[in-house]
Design a protein around this nucleic acid. Sequence first.
DNA 1: TCAGATAAAATCGCGC
DNA 2: GCGCGATTTTATCTGA
Lengths: 81, 81, 81, 81
Amino acid sequence: MDPSTAEAKHLLAFIERVERLEEDKKQVAEDIKDVFAEAKGTGYDVKILRKIISIRKQDKDQRREEEEILALYMAALGMAD
Amino acid sequence: MDPSTAEAKHLLAFIERVERLEEDKKQVAEDIKDVFAEAKGTGYDVKILRKIISIRKQDKDQRREEEEILALYMAALGMAD
Amino acid sequence: MDPSTAEAKHLLAFIERVERLEEDKKQVAEDIKDVFAEAKGTGYDVKILRKIISIRKQDKDQRREEEEILALYMAALGMAD
Amino acid sequence: MDPSTAEAKHLLAFIERVERLEEDKKQVAEDIKDVFAEAKGTGYDVKILRKIISIRKQDKDQRREEEEILALYMAALGMAD
DNA sequence: TCAGATAAAATCGCGC
DNA sequence: GCGCGATTTTATCTGA
């Protein structure tokens, strides 16, 4: 594709937007690692921290799922939510 | 590879074992679909069934995770479990 | 829902049938992993094994499709197959 | 653990920092999906876009690696880079 | 540094 | 046909 066409520029714009966002994501992932490293330096057991976070996440997910099934039940019973 | 060598036969044996197991897996997946189809025919809402199953699974996972973190805590405290 | 009603028992029966089948499926999936692990221990490259299996699967699908097309032609020509 | 202790607050602070960062990461991931969705709406084939991005990433990694090798050679030859 | 475990992406397939 | 969910593959990460 001729890179000077408007078409090519349009395409490149999308690609570069994604690439920038992926850079951001990578950066955030590194920030998370840094926090764990800092916690470890303060004496915390990283494995336990991860497990706590995982359980808290499951709690949240479970609550969300329960709300969803409630909505499904209400829809099945013809009730607005 | 010459398919008459012992090497080739050995390789083929692994491949065919996997292929048979994948057939089994596919069969089980179809059985599951059949059960949902039957439930639907009996008047159940398949989406709700799936959601219930999903929540029950989360319950089980959560219980398992809680046991794991308990074990981690006990290990951290130097207690056998 | 009152879990003692026939309705609830009926529902639970479906759910438990699916759960049992999902257990089976999980078990078969683990068996497949075990075979790959064994092959790996024998010196095979698992990634390549997977590739071979995938290609064989494609071949089979293609052959099946060609047979179906052949059957269609034969039917169109009024020939039994 | 008594959640009112300084210790518990300290722990919670780490956990919440990680949780916030994970929220951020999730948000960025969604932004990426949005860009792809927009590109799709403009007529692009998302699969191809992903392929292009993947190739560009490989190129970049390769270029970086080549620069590193070059630096190694130059260092081995006693040349500053 | 590597294997094993874990998590993330991409692809596939179903149901709506 | 399109989103959504499930599955599979790929990448990342941790512990030995």
